[in-house]
Amino acid sequence: MSAMRGAAAYGRGASAYAKVGVESAVMSASPHQLIVMLFDGALAAIRTARIHLEGGNVAEKGKAISKALDIVNNGLLAALDAERGGEIAERLASLYDYVARLLLSANRHDDVESLNQAEALLTDVASAWREIDGQASAG
Rank of each mutant, 00 (worst) to 15 (best):
R47V: 07
I132W: 03
K67D: 12
V72K: 01
N116V: 15
E83T: 06
A7L: 09
S66R: 07
G86L: 10
H32V: 08
E87H: 10
N74H: 11
L76D: 08
D110Q: 07
S30H: 05
L104Y: 03
L69Q: 04
M1R: 09
I71F: 10
L103K: 03
G55S: 10
G55A: 12
G21N: 09
M37L: 10
A49V: 04
V72E: 00
D133W: 06
L80W: 07
I51F: 13
S2Y: 08
E83G: 09
K19E: 13
G6M: 11
L104C: 05
D97R: 14
L38M: 15
G85K: 09
L34F: 13
A45H: 02
V36K: 09
G75C: 02
R91F: 11
A118Y: 00
A42Y: 00
A138M: 12
L53N: 01
A118R: 00
A49W: 01
R130L: 03
L104M: 01
W129E: 14
G75F: 03
A8K: 03
A45K: 05
S127F: 12
A14G: 02
L115K: 02
S137G: 10
G55K: 05
G6H: 08
V22D: 03
V58K: 14
Q117I: 15
E23W: 04
N116R: 14
A79D: 07
N116T: 14
R50V: 12
M37Q: 06
S127I: 06
R130N: 15
A78H: 05
G85Q: 00
R130V: 15
E87I: 14
A82C: 10
K63G: 08
K19A: 14
A93L: 01
V99E: 02
I88S: 12
D110W: 08
D124G: 13
E83L: 02
V72A: 04
D81V: 14
Y10M: 13
E119Q: 06
D110A: 11
I132L: 15
M1P: 07
A8V: 12
M1L: 06
N57G: 04
K19F: 06
A3K: 12
A136F: 07
T48R: 15
E83R: 01
D81Q: 04
A93Y: 02
Y10C: 06
R101A: 01
V58T: 15
I71K: 00
S114D: 06
Y10N: 11
A18N: 07
N107K: 10
D124L: 09
N73E: 15
M27W: 06
A18H: 08
L103H: 01
N116D: 15
L121A: 03
L121Q: 11
D133P: 00
A45V: 04
H109F: 12
A18I: 12
K19M: 14
A59H: 13
L103R: 03
V112P: 01
K63P: 00
W129F: 13
R47D: 10
E119D: 00
L38A: 14
Q33Y: 11
L80E: 04
A14V: 06
V58A: 13
A82E: 15
E90C: 02
K61D: 08
I71S: 00
G11F: 12
E87N: 11
A44N: 08
L69H: 02
M1H: 05
